[in-house]
C-alpha cells in the first residue's frame, strides 16, 4: 500500500469471523498531512467491515478533532488500504479451506 504517513494496523488478531474488527491508527509522518496535526497518539476503534466505509470513519475522526478536514481523504485511504488487505486475507483463507 502507498505510504500515506498514516499507519493503520489490527489492534487485535482477526479470527476471520467477526463483523467488526479492532483497528489502531497513528500518524507516522506528520509532514505528509496537509492540515496542522496535533500529536494525539494512537487511535483505537472498531470498524464494521460490511456496514461502514473508511471515509465515514475518517470524517468522524475529523469531527472529533483528531485531524484537519483537509486530511480526511488521506486518513480514509489509509483505513481503506488496511481494510482491503484484511478482506483479501479473509477471502484467501476461505478459499484455502479449513
Amino acid at each position: 500500500a502507498e505510504d500515506t504517513g498514516v499507519r493503520v494496523e489490527l489492534a487485535e488478531e482477526d479470527d476471520g469471523k467477526k463483523a467488526a474488527i479492532a483497528l489502531k491508527l497513528w500518524v507516522e509522518d506528520p509532514k505528509k498531512l496537509k492540515g496542522k496535526y496535533k500529536e494525539s497518539g494512537a487511535i483505537e476503534f472498531t470498524f464494521e467491515l460490511e456496514k461502514e466505509t473508511p471515509e465515514g470513519v475518517a470524517q468522524e475522526m475529523v469531527e472529533s478533532g483528531f485531524f484537519h478536514e483537509s486530511d480526511a481523504k488521506i486518513v480514509g485511504k489509509s483505513i481503506r488500504d488496511r481494510v482491503a488487505l484484511i478482506k483479501w486475507r479473509r477471502e484467501r483463507s476461505v478459499l484455502a479451506g479449513p
Binding site: 499507519r7 497513528w26 507516522e28 497518539g41 487511535i43 476503534f45 472498531t46 472529533s64
Partner: peptide
C-alpha cells in the same frame, strides 16, 4: 506514560493511547 483517553463520537468510541517511539518515523 499517559493513561488511555476515550473519545466518543456519534456512537463510536475512540481510544487514544501513546504511540511507542519505535513506531514513529524520524525519531
Amino acid at each position: 506514560l499517559c493513561a488511555a483517553q476515550v473519545v466518543h463520537s456519534a456512537g463510536r468510541r475512540f481510544i487514544v493511547s501513546p504511540v511507542p517511539e519505535s513506531r514513529l518515523k524520524d525519531q
